[in-house]
Simulated scan of single mutants.
Amino acid sequence: MKCLIVFGLIVALFGAFVGYGYVVFTDLTKPLPKPEFKDDTYWGPGDAKDFVPDEKIYEFKLQVPQSEIDDLRKELNRTLRLTEPLDGIAFEYGFNTYALEQFVDYWRDNYLTKWNERQELFNSFKQYKTEIQGLNIHYIHEKVSEEAKEKKHVYPLLLLHGWPGSVREFFDFIPMLTKHSNITDYAFEVVAPSLVGYGWSDAATRPGFNAAEMATVMRNLMLRLGHKKFFIQGG
C-alpha cells in the first residue's frame, strides 16, 4: 500500500513538473507582440507643431573651404601633450594615447594633404538630401547603367553603414552593384544614406532615438524614393 502511495506521489509530482514546464515553454516560445511606434515622430529642432514638412529632394555636393582645412591642420598642430598609457596596456582603460598620436599625425600629415582628391572621389557619386521626420538626411543614390537596365532585373538596395562608420565604406563596390555584368542576371539601384547623426545627416534633437526609430527613418526615406519593397545590407 505504501509503495502505491509513494508511486502515486511520484507520478503526481512528475505530472506537475511536466505541466509547469509546458506552461513555461509555451510562454517563452509564443510570438512576441508586434511593436507599436509611430512612423512620423518628429526628431528635428524646435516644436513639432511649428514644423512644415518639405518633401523635396535636393542635390548635394561636398565643398569644404580650404580655410577650414588649414584651420583644422593648425588645431592638430596644437594638440596637448598626451598622458602615456600604463605599461603593457593597450585599450583596456580607454583609447591608447600612443595610437591616438599616430592617428593625429596621419590625419594632419597625410589625410588632409590629399583632401582635394578625397573630396573629388566623394563627389563622383550622385548625392542628395531630403527631409525625413524633421531631419535632413544625406544619401548616395546610384541607379543602374543603361546597359544593365536593358539586360538585367533591377532591385532597390539599401546599404547601411556601421555604428560608427560612413558611406565611404561602400565606395569601392557601389559600381559593381550598378553596372552590367555577365555573372548575374540582376543589378541594383543603390541607396546609401548617412545614418541619423552621422556624416551629413542631422542628429536627433531629443532623447529616445533608438534602432527602431532609425529603421523608421530609413524606411521613410525609401518610401520617399518610391520603394515599398527593397533589399537591405546592414553594416
Score class of each variant (00 low, 15 high):
T97M: 14
K49M: 13
P45H: 10
T113I: 04
I89A: 06
D87K: 10
K49D: 13
N96C: 03
G94V: 05
K38M: 11
A48F: 02
V64T: 03
A99M: 08
L76E: 02
N96K: 02
G88E: 05
P85S: 02
F25K: 09
L72S: 00
K56M: 14
F91V: 02
T29M: 11
Q63D: 13
V64F: 04
I57H: 05
E84P: 00
S67T: 12
F122S: 00
Y98E: 03
A90I: 08
S67G: 06
L82G: 03
K49H: 08
D105M: 13
S67A: 14
E55I: 13
P35M: 06
F103V: 11
K30C: 11
V23D: 11
A99G: 09
Y106D: 08
D109H: 10
D105P: 00
T79K: 15
Q119S: 12
F37Y: 12
V52N: 03
Y93R: 10
G46P: 06
L82K: 01
W43P: 00
D40T: 06
R73N: 07
P53R: 08
Y128R: 00
L80W: 08
K38R: 14
Q102N: 12
Y42V: 04
Y106R: 14
P45M: 12
A90C: 07
A90P: 02
K126H: 15
P53T: 01
F125S: 01
S124I: 02
F60C: 10
I57K: 03
L28G: 01
R118A: 05
Y98D: 05
I89E: 05
F37T: 01
D109Q: 08
W115N: 00
E36S: 13
L28V: 08
A99L: 11
Q127H: 08
N96M: 02
R81A: 14
Y42L: 05
W115L: 06
G44V: 02
D40L: 07
Y111P: 04
F91L: 02
L100F: 09
P53K: 08
T79L: 13
L62S: 01
L28E: 09
V24A: 11
E117Y: 08
F60W: 12
E117H: 13
R81H: 10
D105A: 09
N123P: 03
P53V: 04
R118E: 15
A99S: 07
P65C: 07
L76N: 00
K49P: 11
K114R: 15
F103T: 14
E84F: 12
N116Y: 11
E68F: 14
Y111S: 05
Y106L: 09
T29F: 15
T79H: 11
Y111F: 11
R81S: 15
K30E: 10
D70C: 06
Y58C: 12
L121H: 03
N123F: 12
A48K: 08
